[in-house]
């Protein structure tokens, strides 16, 4: 069972088709699968539905797939960083299904765990609850949300071993584990593939069972909001 591929294009070979549902990891531009996104742009597949917390920024991350009009629908919690997104949305070219951020994460996790639906208090009494099943538990009202079962997951981790065990770094973990779990096939890009046996088994963040294909590559890791404080002068 060989999981390692030479590059993003070969790792996606045979997996891409029009109108598919893709779950993508990342929060803003932090921990996004840059290389796999570029390869999907290059593939030219269209009509995509993408479950991802955000949609990149103009010209970077998932924003690249907007420029090429490959996205039909986004399932996201926040898309405010992207002018092209707004233009396509307001002109009716692009659909958006807003999900509260935690609901989106849990829908991915649930899908990956074989759970087709769950109840949550989030969104009760808001537009999010419209058309959804309501049910009371212990005197409180909840709404049902459905698990996400994606055709493909694209994920970014820090390190992997050759069997696909993953380690993430700091807040770049974010949506990557739940996104990885909910796909029928999961392709992961990492900064470094290390020899099997060199990662501490107690420190694995996501077990290789969720990882089908793996690539190593260079990442730009663009910063969206650079904020600093001044050093106090002595």
């Amino acid at each position: 069972m060989k999981k390692i591929y030479p590059d993003a294009k070969s790792a996606l070979d045979g997996l891409l088709k029009d109108d598919m549902l893709i779950a993508a990891g990342g929060f803003g531009l932090c921990g996004i699968p840059e290389l796999l996104i570029d390869a999907i742009v290059e593939s030219g597949i269209k009509g995509l539905t993408i479950a991802s917390n955000n949609c990149g920024v103009d010209g970077f991350g998932l924003g690249k797939l907007l420029d090429t009009h490959q996205i039909k629908k986004m399932m996201s919690s926040y898309v405010g960083e992207n002018d092209e997104f707004m233009r396509q949305y307001l002109s009716g070219e692009l659909e958006i299904e807003f999900n509260p951020q935690g609901t989106l994460a849990e829908r991915m996790r649930a899908g990956g765990c074989g759970i087709p639906g769950f109840y949550t208090k989030t969104g009760v009494g808001t537009v999010i609850a419209e058309g959804k099943e309501h049910k009371d538990f212990n005197g409180e009202t909840y709404i049902m949300e459905e698990g996400i079962f994606a055709d493909l997951s694209i994920v970014k981790a820090w390190k992997a071993d050759e069997t696909g065990n993953l380690v993430f770094r700091k807040t770049a973990r974010n949506f990557n584990p739940p996104a990885a779990m909910c796909g029928k096939i999961c392709v992961v890009e990492v900064e470094e593939i290390v020899p099997t046996g060199s990662l501490d088994p107690d420190m694995i963040h996501l077990a290789g069972i969720y990882v089908h294909r793996l690539i190593q590559g260079e990442h730009e890791k663009r910063i969206e909001q650079r904020t600093v404080r001044q050093k106090e002068t002595a």
């Binding site: 932090c30 960083e81 994460a105 993430f168 700091k170 807040t171 973990r173 890791k221 909001q225 904020t227």
Partner: peptide, 27 residues
């Protein structure tokens, strides 16, 4: 670039910091 807050601003960690994924965070 791997360490940001929910406003996407760069931040720092403390000696008590713990990281987790978004599903656990909202859990």
């Amino acid at each position: 670039p791997d360490l940001i807050n929910a406003g996407k601003q760069t931040i720092t960690e403390l000696n008590r910091t713990a990281y987790f994924d978004s599903a656990q965070s909202f859990g």
